[in-house]
Design a protein around this nucleic acid. Structure first.
Lengths: 122, 122
DNA sequence: AGTTTGCTCAACCATGCGGTTGAATATAGT
DNA sequence: ACTATATTCAACCGCATGGTTGAGCAAACT
């Protein structure tokens, strides 16, 4: 079931709403990384990057394994799947959009039938 | 090409990171709605709701047609498709995750081969 | 033992966000 | 013309966010 009022989704989408964090996720998609490794590409202090990592962790998007003095992070795909599930609800809209476009291009202004009134108030 | 450092994605995901706005999108998925209609379900001022609508509009998630004194909003699926495209990159992670789980459940601890080391540093 | 390394914590700062209220604007109805 | 309706605008408030710096702490190296 796709929950609507969900603090989980709030945290997930909020975490994704920052390019730095999206970049970190992309990096983690390539394998495990330490906090330092994740921070390295960015022109910000380690502390700042560490906060981003924490945000990702709080959203459940990554897991952290403390190995001695280094913190090893790995991607946790579950929440991304949740976000994807939420978005999937709208999938028919953009596919439909593309379908309509394709149809319009294909028929080139032939038989102008009903202008596709689909689902207003039932 | 799935852009990483994108103010567009920033805006889209940020807009999605709020339950009120997600609710509005769900409502708009059912058909066109005025700002007032969108605001009605929420226990907040109209001005506050109006700001949410503006946020959605700025993210490109909705379009607004001003009809006399009412503003009619409709869903714009493109940006949702972008967000979906961004997430799609990670799809293999959660499907793989589920596959691994399924596999583990199916084989019940048989032939412990390589523990699935996939793509660390090349 | 002493130092360096990896990371967090705490305090601080500027900015932005989500909310409020009250006024402004423009259209619609009488 | 007057009033009611639909919506935005502007100023304000409290709080979270994203960044900084400096200190703190535990593990690793020599």
């Amino acid at each position: 079931m796709v929950e609507q009022t969900s603090p989980q989704l709030d945290a997930i989408f909020h975490a994704l709403g920052d390019a730095t964090r999206r970049h970190m996720l992309r990096e983690l998609a390539r394998g495990e990384r330490t906090v330092g490794q994740l921070a390295e590409p960015f022109a910000m202090s380690l502390a700042a990057a560490s906060k981003h990592v924490r945000t990702l962790e709080n959203a459940g998007l990554i897991r952290r394994e403390i190995r001695g003095r280094t913190h090893l992070c790995r991607l946790e795909p579950g929440p991304l799947a949740s976000a994807n599930a939420w978005l999937a609800f709208y999938e028919r809209f953009w596919t439909q959009h593309l379908d309509a476009l394709e149809h319009a291009l294909r028929t080139e202004g032939a038989h102008p039938s009903k202008p596709s009134r689909k689902g207003d108030d039932p």
